[in-house]
Design a protein around this nucleic acid. Sequence first.
DNA 1: CAATGTATTGACTTTAACGTAAAAAGACGG
DNA 2: CCGTCTTTTTACGTTAAAGTCAATACATTG
Lengths: 133, 133
Amino acid sequence: MQRYFTITQLTQEFDITTRTLRFYEAQGLVMPQRRGRQRLYTPGDRTRIKLILRGKRLGFSLNEVKELIEMYGKAPGETGQLRLLLDKIAARREELLEKQRDIELTLLELEEVEAGAKVRMTELQSNAKPEEV
Amino acid sequence: MQRYFTITQLTQEFDITTRTLRFYEAQGLVMPQRRGRQRLYTPGDRTRIKLILRGKRLGFSLNEVKELIEMYGKAPGETGQLRLLLDKIAARREELLEKQRDIELTLLELEEVEAGAKVRMTELQSNAKPEEV
DNA sequence: CAATGTATTGACTTTAACGTAAAAAGACGG
DNA sequence: CCGTCTTTTTACGTTAAAGTCAATACATTG
């Protein structure tokens, strides 16, 4: 019933190397099953990998990503320290909101530069080839 | 007329070390003036440092940050390759938009976890101390 | 001016996140 | 069954971004 992915399938899908996936495994970020020595990734493993890569894109370290994923992973029952979990969530949310603000600012600045560049560009096009020998 | 900052002022303001600022200088990201051997940072330098830290928070490497800052830095006239600049801007914008989507998704997931945790918490509070000896 | 504190420079070290290479073990197609 | 290809494991190398440490230079202040 379970459908499995091989390691190379996943490296191709996500454009990463086998080294990377094995490294993530060594760090305890994914734990694919084995058939003999071969790794078999479940759809769940695949989702975890997606989460890892998303975290990385946002500039989180693998350790931070690991903590994050472990929050999702816990069944709501086995969460020993609920207060602690809620605090972690709050902290993580703050970081994400800060990143959002950072992005907005950067986008605004990019727009300014772009606007300037476009003006300059039409200027150049109106005076056709002014510097021709 | 110019007001200057010392290196330690800035390290305190941004909560970084002197090593970090000197490293950024070695990488050509800031170029403070000198009075003798001492570094003097202008308000402009300070702004650059802010931009660097913002870029880092977003997961950009120092080299990427450098490219970004150099876009801002150019007066619109001295921009040799306007087309190239516009392309770079577009590419950077794409990355930022992707990060925005990544953040939204992560925030949603955090909310789910939080909701689960809160439910579990009130459950625990209603049955007061169920496991007492 | 001696003492004390702050800056600078240079060299070496560290950490995270892989890259690369080599050797051995399966897997597969003809 | 043989050769080829993929996977795995092990081990060492690399890069970015600093950290740490030592020696030296200024600067200040009592």
